[in-house]
Design a binder for these strands. Sequence first.
DNA 1: GACACCTTACTGACCGGTAAGTAGAGTGGG
DNA 2: CCCACTCTACTTACCGGTCAGTAAGGTGTC
Lengths: 193, 193
Amino acid sequence: MKAETEARTDTRKRILDIAEELLLTRGFNAFSYQHISRELGVRNAAIHYHFPHKTDLGTALVERYIRRLERFIEQHGEASATAQLERFFELADAYFRNDRQVCPSGILTVELHTLPVEMQVAARRFIEVMRQWAERIATLGQVEGSMRFAGTPAAMGLTMLATLQGGLQLARIEAAWLNSIKQQIRCLLGLAD
Amino acid sequence: MKAETEARTDTRKRILDIAEELLLTRGFNAFSYQHISRELGVRNAAIHYHFPHKTDLGTALVERYIRRLERFIEQHGEASATAQLERFFELADAYFRNDRQVCPSGILTVELHTLPVEMQVAARRFIEVMRQWAERIATLGQVEGSMRFAGTPAAMGLTMLATLQGGLQLARIEAAWLNSIKQQIRCLLGLAD
DNA sequence: GACACCTTACTGACCGGTAAGTAGAGTGGG
DNA sequence: CCCACTCTACTTACCGGTCAGTAAGGTGTC
């Protein structure tokens, strides 16, 4: 039955949702199964039932990110470079508005050395998807003629990713900085002055 | 005596040095007094003698960063904007070469919510010093005429800081990216193409 | 003898993880 | 229709290890 299937996966999904919030606000090392179980109103062992090891939970989390991101990119793949850039910005904005979360790639790279290997591999994949999208936007913008910048599209895309990743983190100190940085990226791409 | 003074502060300094390495490679939440004491060859309680609480250690660490950074900036304050930019880059390079460490501001902002308040305050100060330097470089570059970029020097400086912070983190995934990003910043400032 | 600088020995809280048990829903056989 | 069984999704009750932190004692130096 439909209801049964929903019930079956509901707890698992809620665990992932809570863990996602915790990952993006506190980092992987600074949240525990207890944080989740308390919030969810279940016992600690219930989390272990769905995700035997914390590694499993972390990896599942990153892999969900990758799926979501790929779907998001696909949805906007036909748009113009400038429109895609704004979607790119909106992604960052959405993170920030939700409890001043930072970009997952920020968390994952900062904690990289302490992460289980399986998560590291997933993290690399996530970042590569992100980077390739940024590069594609820069390439398209140059081809379209809508964006004008020095250097290669590959370097520009990578730089945009780095800037937004760092910017999202710095915005925790001063919220206004995020808009400043987005506007400056537009400037640097010849989209404003 | 000189020797006594040295001996007195030697352990304290070595604790800070080891803690610094741990902070920059693992983050604040992922290192413990035991990591330090094992490396240093003393007992756990010896660390507590010098830094009663982990907060004390963390705050002392950030404050040492601020002092060092201010000294570093002062040393190069008379140089040209382009020369200061290269010093800015070298700072990042130095972190990266040493065990792929990331910029302290990266760690501190990512972990911000989980940090003791005292450390948060110190972190804000550190980042403000960093940001102001970046802004000063951009302003000087524009006044000198050596740098040409759209937008305000304040936004450009902030963006440079964000880019380098993010770039240093991404370089953990692929080392070559750091040079790519540095070169792209030079391009965006009209220093190369 | 006072002090700096450690040690040993400990505490309580929390960590991820496991084992065993159970309520309830679903399933097949007679 | 009912009983026996199985499976999912938990629970309670632990485990050993690690965490930051503390108290009390020892030792070498001035």
